[in-house]
Amino acid sequence: MHPVLDDLLGDIGDLSVQILFTASTDHKDERAKPVKHLLAIYEANNEELTKDSLGDWYSASEKNYGLFAEKYKVDGDLNNQTEKVDKMHDWCKKMNIEFTPTIFFNGYQLPETYNITDIEYFLKS
């Protein structure tokens, strides 16, 4: 999904994408650390680094948080991202988002009959 979104962002100048994560702050949720890390990278206001880190994380055939964290060092405590993770997790629960990626287009969930690659046709028509 990430490469498709990256291509769309490059092709369509006024397109923006919001990424929400379903991770929780439960200590058993292995998704929490990389999500907090990605949020910290984003918070540093470095668009290119954010894009690169998202691409590296989601294109990796095997997710290794230690290697990822070594490559993309962040300043500060990742626990500073806890409130954001909690808010995203709560919103996803309220909206019954149980899997990712779930795509919303102009505020509406993309129906299952469509694919992310179909969005290009909507945007260019």
Rank of each mutant, 00 (worst) to 15 (best):
H89S: 12
K71M: 09
V74Q: 00
Y65L: 06
D77I: 01
W57D: 02
S53F: 01
A60P: 00
Y72F: 06
L54C: 09
G55T: 01
G76W: 07
Y65F: 09
C92V: 08
N80P: 01
E70K: 15
N79S: 14
W57R: 00
Y58T: 02
N79H: 10
K93I: 15
M88W: 09
K73S: 10
E62L: 08
M88P: 00
D90I: 13
N64E: 03
S59I: 02
S53N: 07
G66Q: 12
D56S: 07
G66Y: 00
E70V: 05
Y72M: 04
D56A: 08
S61R: 14
S59F: 02
L54D: 04
L54F: 13
S59R: 11
Q81W: 03
H89G: 05
S59W: 03
Y72H: 11
E70F: 04
N79K: 11
L67C: 10
G66R: 11
H89P: 08
W57Y: 12
H89F: 13
L54V: 07
G55W: 02
Y65C: 04
K73G: 13
K71P: 01
A69I: 00
V74M: 00
N79D: 13
E62R: 11
D90C: 05
T82S: 15
V74F: 00
K93C: 11
S59M: 08
N79F: 08
L67F: 01
L67D: 13
H89T: 10
G76V: 04
L67I: 09
G76Q: 06
D86I: 12
D77E: 06
V85N: 03
E70S: 10
G55Q: 04
K93Q: 12
L78T: 06
Y72R: 08
N79M: 07
K93P: 01
W91H: 14
L54G: 05
F68L: 05
Y72D: 07
L54S: 04
W91C: 14
G55M: 06
K93L: 11
K84Q: 13
D77W: 03
E62D: 10
E70I: 07
Q81T: 02
M88I: 15
K87C: 03
S59D: 05
E83D: 14
K87A: 13
W57N: 01
Y72C: 03
S53T: 04
K63Q: 09
D86T: 04
K93V: 15
G76E: 04
S53C: 08
K63N: 07
D75M: 06
K73L: 12
D75T: 06
